[in-house]
Amino acid sequence: MDKKRILITGAAGFLGSHLCDRFIKEGMYVIGMDNLITGSLNNIEHLRSNVDFEFRHHDVTTFVDIPGTLDYVLHFASPASPIDYLKIPIQTLKVGAIGTHNLLGLSKDKNARILVASTSEVYGDPLVHPQNEEYYGNVSPVGPRGVYDEAKRFMESITMAYHRFHDLDTRIARIFNTYGPRMRLNDGRVIPAFIGQALRGEDLTVFGDGSQTRSFCYVDDQVEGIYRLLMGDYHYPVNIGNPTEISIKDFAEEIVKLTGSHQKIVYKPLPKDDPQQRRPDISKAKEILQWEPKVDREIGMQRTYEYFKALPTDELYKKDHRDFADRNKK
């Protein structure tokens, strides 16, 4: 019997690389695709000699052609951290709009089921707490974060349009803050930022007064939720995240304790449109997917800390050196 074939975009990214691992483990032939603007080949180096994996260096905002059959498509190509999408706003919009359009067209041509990676950011700075899938959000389309938020909202809209108009078999995952090994140390997200500062002996930077909240989901749990959603039969958005909520200030104190450091917590002004509360209502995931997170934050954070601690010393001090300026003109 021929193996099922799956295309995973954003395959060299944090979450995409873990998805490659999972679907190879499930006995599928995985085609990983990434333009490497924010991804790293280091994340998939262990797969390069695997006979069930191939990598294609390609930008999904240009025409995507995959010879042969395809059974599934996972669209995970997108900058996912503020430091990235604020530096490459046009590419962020293009991958959410043009990239999604290209992959929906490919899925239609191949008669493949497609799952697109949306985000909790579609809720913006929410006026409903916790956030459920029926909430439409509170997003500024012209604010600095709008390039990411609106790209994902458009992604959901065009995906549902293909489902309704072309009867395409679609899935939409609304992903909440995910963490674990292979996160990029200098990508600006809360966990790698705090751990990096602690390992360098720097004070931990909290924006605002630290009362804003986040809900962190370990990558293994996230991958399991995505897998179940893809294999299910529900076409509308589903929140995949951990409903355990913590303030940023309390989380910074947890990092100090975890790393055994003695740094102070310092406060800086809150960035514009930064969400004040973030917690998923996962009732739908529990009911439809029989899924909920299993990994406690204490265990997940210990694994993540061990990963960062094992990185070469020069990684701790290396700034994000990518040349965004030229790319941003495209």
Rank of each mutant, 00 (worst) to 15 (best):
D59E: 04
S81Y: 09
K94M: 12
H75N: 15
A112R: 11
A77K: 06
N102Y: 11
Q131K: 05
N132H: 13
V73N: 01
I114T: 00
P89L: 12
Y148M: 00
G143W: 05
P79M: 04
P144S: 05
T100G: 04
N102L: 12
Y85W: 15
K110V: 11
D109A: 15
Y123D: 02
G137T: 04
D59H: 10
G105P: 01
I90W: 13
S78N: 09
K108D: 13
A112I: 14
H101P: 00
P89K: 06
V142L: 08
V116T: 09
T100N: 12
Y136Q: 10
T119A: 11
S140F: 02
T69L: 10
V122N: 07
A112K: 05
Y123T: 03
D71A: 12
I83Y: 07
E134K: 15
S120L: 03
N111A: 14
P126L: 04
P130E: 03
D65S: 11
Y135A: 00
L106W: 15
V147P: 00
A97F: 13
S120V: 07
L104S: 09
F55A: 01
V60M: 12
N132W: 08
Y85G: 00
R56V: 10
G99K: 09
P130Y: 04
D125T: 11
V95W: 05
V95A: 07
A80F: 07
F76A: 14
Q91W: 10
F55R: 08
S107I: 09
I88L: 14
I88N: 10
S118V: 06
V64F: 06
V122M: 04
F63C: 06
S140L: 02
D59M: 07
P82F: 15
V122Y: 11
V147A: 11
E121V: 10
Q131Y: 00
Y148D: 00
K108C: 08
K110N: 14
A97D: 10
T119L: 06
N111E: 15
L93D: 04
V122C: 11
K87M: 13
T100S: 13
Y148H: 08
S118L: 07
N102Q: 14
A77W: 05
L103A: 09
R145V: 01
L115R: 04
H129I: 15
G96S: 10
I88A: 14
K108M: 08
A77M: 03
E134F: 12
V73W: 02
N111W: 06
P126Q: 07
H75E: 02
H129W: 14
H75Y: 03
E54C: 09
A97P: 00
H57T: 05
I83T: 08
V128M: 12
A97M: 08
G68L: 13
A97E: 04
P144E: 01
G124V: 08
F63I: 05
T61Q: 12
P67T: 10
K87R: 15
L106D: 14
D71K: 11
A77Y: 06
G68Y: 11
L86Q: 15
H75I: 01
L74S: 01
A117K: 03
T92D: 11
G99Y: 10
G105M: 15
A77N: 03
T92S: 15
A97G: 06
V95R: 01
H129S: 13
